[in-house]
C-alpha cells in the first residue's frame, strides 16, 4: 500500500528532523548571500550603472538568467548525491533500519519517505533562490510561465538524480561511501554520457570516411555512431538545455534558431532528422524517460532494502 506524503511516517520524521537543524537556516542564508553578491557583481559588470533603467541591456539579462540556471543545476548535481547518500545508509549505520523494517511500513513506503524528504529539501533550496531568477521578470524578456517551466525541468532533474542516490544509499552500507559513489554516478550520467557521445561520434566519423563500404546512402545511426545521441535522453543536462534554449534562448551559442537539442543534432548529425517527432520534443520525452527510470530505481531500492527474500509458501528452495 502506498501512502500519500502526509501519512508517511519516515517522510514526516525526516522533515521534522531537518527543519530542527540549524544547518538548514544557515545554509539557506549563506546560499542567498552568495547568490545576491554574485548577482550584484554581474549586474555591475554588464550594465555599468544599473540604477539607470534606460541603460539596461535585455540580452545580457537572458545571459545572466542562463548562467544562473546553469549554476543552480550544477548545485543540484552536487546536492542530490550528497543529500541522498546518507538517506538509507545512515539508518543502517545507526541500526534503526532493522527496527523500521519490523513495522507496518512497506519497503517502498520507507524508500519513498526518504526520497521525498531529500527532494523536498532541495526543492526548498531552489525556491529560496527564486527571487534571483525573478529579477529577469522585472526587465522583461521572460514570462512567469517560462520561469516555472524551467523550474519544473530542474525539479525533474532533482527527482531523477535523487533516485540514483537513494538506490546507492540502499545498497552501500557506509553513508560516506554512498555519497562518494553517488557523486561519481551523477558525473557519469552528466559528463560521462556526453563524453561517450563525443567518442562514439568521432569513431563514427572515422568509420564513414575511411571505411570504403560505407557510402552516404548507407549511413545509419550505427555506422555514424549517432545511436549515442539517444543515450542523452537520460542526461538531464540535455533536457534542461532543451527547455532553456527553446524558452529563453541560449544567446545563440549554437545557432540563432533556438531549437534546443534539435539544433545541436541538426548541426552535428548525418542521419538523425531534427524535425523528427522524438528530436523535436526532446525535453518532454527525456523527462518522461527520466521519471520512468526514477520509478524503476525506487522499486529496485525497495527490493534491496532488506536482503530478506521471503520463501514462497510451498517452496523447498534454500536461499543462501
Amino acid at each position: 500500500m502506498q501512502r500519500i506524503m502526509l501519512k508517511n511516517a519516515v517522510f514526516l520524521k525526516d522533515v521534522s528532523i531537518r527543519s530542527k537543524k540549524k544547518r538548514l537556516a544557515v545554509s539557506f542564508f549563506a546560499l542567498n548571500l552568495i547568490a545576491s553578491m554574485v548577482f550584484m557583481l554581474i549586474l555591475m559588470l554588464t550594465n555599468g550603472n544599473f540604477a539607470n533603467y534606460s541603460n539596461v541591456d535585455i540580452q545580457s539579462f537572458s545571459w545572466i538568467y542562463d548562467g544562473f540556471i546553469i549554476i543552480e543545476c550544477a548545485m543540484i548535481c552536487i546536492m542530490a548525491p550528497m543529500e541522498t547518500g546518507p538517506a538509507i545508509s545512515n539508518e543502517r549505520e545507526r541500526q534503526t533500519l532493522d527496527v523500521l523494517l519490523t513495522t507496518n511500513m512497506s519497503h517502498f513506503d520507507i524508500i519513498l519517505g526518504k526520497y521525498l524528504s531529500s527532494a523536498l529539501y532541495m526543492l526548498l533550496t531552489l525556491v529560496s533562490l527564486l527571487p534571483f531568477q525573478a529579477v529577469v521578470l522585472i526587465y522583461g524578456g521572460i514570462s512567469l510561465g517560462q520561469l516555472f517551466a524551467v523550474m519544473l525541468s530542474q525539479i525533474i532533474t532533482i527527482m531523477y538524480l535523487s533516485s540514483f542516490g537513494i538506490y546507492f544509499s540502499t545498497v552501500i552500507k557506509k553513508s560516506s561511501r554512498a555519497s562518494a559513489v553517488n557523486l561519481c554516478v551523477v558525473f557519469l550520467i552528466v559528463a560521462g554520457s556526453a563524453l561517450l557521445c563525443v567518442i562514439a561520434r568521432v569513431i563514427g566519423e572515422l568509420n564513414i570516411s575511411y571505411n570504403s563500404s560505407v557510402h552516404t546512402s548507407t549511413y545509419n545511426i550505427f555506422n555514424t555512431g549517432e545511436w549515442s545521441y539517444l543515450l542523452l535522453y537520460l542526461n538531464p543536462a540535455t533536457t534542461v538545455f532543451d527547455v532553456l534554449d527553446k524558452l529563453v534562448g541560449f544567446g545563440g551559442v549554437f545557432s540563432s534558431n533556438y531549437n534546443g537539442m534539435a539544433t545541436i543534432i541538426d548541426e552535428t548529425a548525418h542521419v538523425l532528422d531534427p524535425n523528427n517527432f522524438f528530436i523535436k520534443h526532446w525535453a518532454p520525452i527525456g523527462f518522461t524517460l527520466q521519471m520512468v527510470t526514477a520509478c524503476l530505481m525506487l522499486r529496485r531500492s525497495a527490493s534491496k532494502l532488506n536482503s530478506v527474500k521471503r520463501r514462497k509458501k510451498h517452496g523447498k528452495d534454500k536461499n543462501n
Binding site: A9, K13, I17, K21, T96, T103, N104
Partner: peptide, 17 residues
Amino acid sequence: YADLTASEYLHFFAGAY
C-alpha cells in the same frame, strides 16, 4: 534517533503503524 525527543520517537513509530 538521537535528534528526536522521547515523545517524537514514539509518535514516529505510531505513524509507522
